[in-house]
């Protein structure tokens, strides 16, 4: 069965790991506080700046563009600088790259501020301080942990930064700027989701 084969590739070198353990009560409390602080809306629009540091590369890769969030359609990520590319991350994401699909799902939940949904796939550690909160996600499945070390998210009433650390010491830092709610059917938001995507 080919589907099993494809998913099995993800489990490249992995040993048995116990299934999801529930969050500790105090952690649940912190997460609830964070989710309460976060002002999410069904549709949001904003900008991003991304810095990717790869061990091989002489300098970090900087990019910026428009990010859009829709409850129904997922997250649109349009890079405008230094190249033009466009990706839409969605729940049913199906792309050519098996690993990209594994990252799209947690990103989607993070953008929605839906940390509880990630409890099954990641060990979730949350810390809330007066002006900022921070959530650290560590993959539970060893197959994914071989690629991703952790995902750190921080913010206040909005998500401000996402930091993706890879096992090969690559780091991707995403700053979200000016994230604001828009009404449904907002033409700027619709345009983001209607335009064609980058080929995968």
């Amino acid at each position: 069965m080919r589907i099993l084969w494809a998913s099995a590739v993800l489990c490249l070198v992995a040993s048995l790991s116990p299934l999801a353990s529930a969050l500790a009560p105090e952690q649940q409390q912190v997460l609830r506080t964070i989710e309460a602080r976060l002002q999410t809306a069904p549709q949001m629009l904003g900008r991003f700046e991304q810095k990717k540091t790869l061990p091989m590369l002489p300098r970090p890769l900087l990019s910026s563009g428009v990010v859009a969030l829709s409850q129904d359609k997922g997250v649109s990520w349009r890079v405008q600088n230094p190249i033009a590319s466009h990706r839409i991350l969605s729940e049913e994401q199906a792309g050519g790259d098996a690993m990209a699909r594994q990252i799209a799902y947690p990103l989607l939940q993070i953008f929605r501020g839906n940390f509880f949904a990630l409890d099954d796939l990641f060990d979730v550690a949350a810390k809330a301080e007066a002006d900022q909160w921070r959530v650290t996600l560590t993959p539970k499945a060893e197959s994914i942990a071989k690629v991703i070390t952790s995902i750190e998210v921080s913010g206040d009433d909005k998500i401000e930064q996402i930091r993706l650390a890879e096992a090969n010491s690559a780091v991707t830092e995403m700053q979200l700027l000016d994230l604001h709610a828009v009404r449904q059917g907002d033409p700027a938001l619709s345009a983001e989701f209607d335009s064609p995507q980058q080929e995968q």
Binding site: S7, L10, C11, L16, S17, L19, Q102, K140, A141
Partner: peptide, 21 residues
Amino acid sequence: RRYFSDGPQLATRVYGQIPVQ
């Protein structure tokens, strides 16, 4: 990488060792 993981394009998440499509 694409050659090696070539297969049908369904959304898959791995919970523990169990692939959920």
